[in-house]
Computed example of a mutant assay.
Amino acid sequence: MSAAEVHAALQDWAARLVSLGAVVAGRLRPGLAYAEAVALAAHHGYDLSEDVAALWTWRDGAATAAGQPPAHLAPGQEFAPLDASLRRSREYHEASLAEARGDRRTWQAHWVVAVHGHALPLVLDGSRPGPDTFRHDPHAHPLHVARSPLAQRVARWHEMVDTGTWRVARDGTWDVDLTHLPAVPHAHRQDLT
């Protein structure tokens, strides 16, 4: 998936946020130039691909202001500027190295926090094209973590709004109603080796 396709998916999401009256729509910061994103990544020790950088070349996070309601890109998901995301990613990596037991590390050097979630961060995997996303759970086995390209993840956000599971309250913040969550039967994975 190209950076242009990622931008298109995110632009559709931004338009949806505007139509819903979400406060985050008015707080999205301008995107970085790709050269700026690469230089910032190099400063933090990352080799950032164009498809991973696409999130921040679209918009460089959401501005936060004291005393105002949170401006989350999706419920409970803080969209931080690239600098803050790279800093947090580096902190996770260093902590993982310090805690490593054998070859088992809980954070890889090519992972970048995309959205800081209230429970588990949404991560972009820089080793895979797309960019591939997943929720990082240091206690989960890598084969049991759901992965999807960023544009597919954004499509899922639209679905959550369509079903009424996510909606925007009168104050422009997110409201979640899990009674509207679509029931999807568990499918056993057949591709485990």
Rank of each mutant, 00 (worst) to 15 (best):
A155P: 15
R170I: 04
H158A: 13
Q108S: 09
P121L: 08
R105Q: 14
A151F: 08
R156I: 11
T133K: 04
H141E: 08
L120A: 12
M160F: 12
A146H: 13
T133F: 01
P131A: 04
A155I: 06
G130C: 01
F134R: 14
R105N: 10
D103A: 11
V115N: 03
M160H: 11
A140Y: 07
V161E: 09
R167D: 15
V112L: 01
H141D: 12
P149H: 05
H118T: 09
R153P: 01
D175K: 05
H136V: 00
Q152H: 09
D175R: 10
P131T: 02
R153D: 10
H110A: 13
A169E: 09
E159T: 12
D162T: 15
H158L: 13
L120C: 12
L150S: 08
R170M: 10
A155S: 15
P138C: 08
R147M: 03
T133R: 02
G172I: 15
P131C: 06
A155M: 11
S148D: 03
W166S: 03
R135Q: 11
V168R: 00
P142M: 04
L122Q: 08
A146R: 15
W166Y: 14
V112N: 01
H158Q: 13
P138S: 07
E159F: 07
H144D: 09
P121R: 05
D103Y: 08
V115I: 12
V161L: 14
D137L: 07
H158C: 12
R153A: 14
V145A: 08
R167E: 14
E159K: 13
V113M: 04
H136G: 02
T173I: 07
H139C: 11
H116E: 11
W111N: 04
Q152I: 00
D125T: 04
R128N: 00
R167A: 09
P142K: 09
R128I: 03
V123E: 01
W107H: 06
T163Q: 14
R170G: 15
W166L: 14
W174S: 04
V123L: 03
A109G: 00
H144E: 06
V145D: 02
D137C: 06
V113P: 00
W107E: 00
W166Q: 04
R156F: 13
D162Q: 14
S127L: 08
W157Q: 05
A151P: 15
H136P: 04
S148R: 15
V115K: 02
V161F: 08
G102V: 06
Q108I: 02
A151Y: 07
M160V: 10
Q108D: 13
A114L: 09
T106I: 08
V145Q: 09
T163R: 13
L122Y: 08
V113G: 01
T173N: 06
T163L: 08
D103P: 04
G117H: 08
T133I: 02
Q152M: 05
V113Y: 01
A155Y: 07
V154G: 13
H118S: 11
R104V: 10
A109M: 02
R128E: 02
S127I: 04
R170N: 14
D175E: 13
G117C: 11
E159R: 15
